[in-house]
Design a binder for these strands. Sequence first.
DNA 1: GTCCAGGCATGCA
DNA 2: TGCATGCATGGA
Length: 272
Amino acid sequence: MNVIYCDNDVILEDVACLNLDLTLDCGQAFRWEKQEDGSWSGVAEGVFLNIAKKDNKIILKNTTRENFEKIWLNYFDFEKNYSEICRRLKQDKLIAPTVDEYYGIRIVNQNSWEALCSFVISQQNNIKRIKGIIDRLCKAYGDEIGNGFYSFPSAEKLSTLSVDDFEKLGTGYRAKYLEKLAKDVASGVIDLEKIKMLSLEEARKELLNIYGVGIKVANCALLFGFGFYDAFPVDVWMKRVMEYYPNGLPECFNGIGGIAQQYLFHWARNNL
DNA sequence: GTCCAGGCATGCA
DNA sequence: TGCATGCATGGA
């Protein structure tokens, strides 16, 4: 990858394996909006970004070098060698054609608080409605940061809400989970930064102690918000996929099971 | 009207 | 430990 700082834009050349449409609309992050020109706009860590791919170059519009290095380099994991990862995954003949068909899906590294909240909301829910709830949550309680976009509200902010406030956003029976989660994170009873430092098994155990977090939500949060690439979420779609792996997951998935999972999840939603 | 969605808590055996 | 049930909402 080659980084060029040009006027107010950051331009990346030779980024292997990044399809923005697949990556930003594959059910891992819920706050990216496709623009009429085909680019994507969204927010992470309270910072707005418009990103596009043109002529095999990735263009981050109106982005400072500081924000690129502080946020987006890690968010899109530009330095991770996805070509090598995909080559490894394709040692499994079952997933190989899927990796080719949907080549360019990456796991983005989301803020752990945002990911945990988002996937508590996601349970027993569909992606379209999850996006709507999170959008209303951000517009009601986040900070406006321009262009009609809002930051994801902090735990401190959400800790002031009642169960009824969460219900008014359309969260349904998940409102009571969110109310307690926000208060416990804000008060320090739940320490997300500490959980990041644990092993996968220990971190998962901590998340499973949280009211409203089961094995599926825990694994999604671990994969999408805590940097555990070996977490392997199994939802109703992945349960269908697992019938193709009656003897368990192949060895070549070790350490990158979560990435394999995202390709299989996408395949399942389009084919099953 | 019924079924379903990136499931979980609870009660009961 | 494993299984059945209730749960909010909105689109298909």
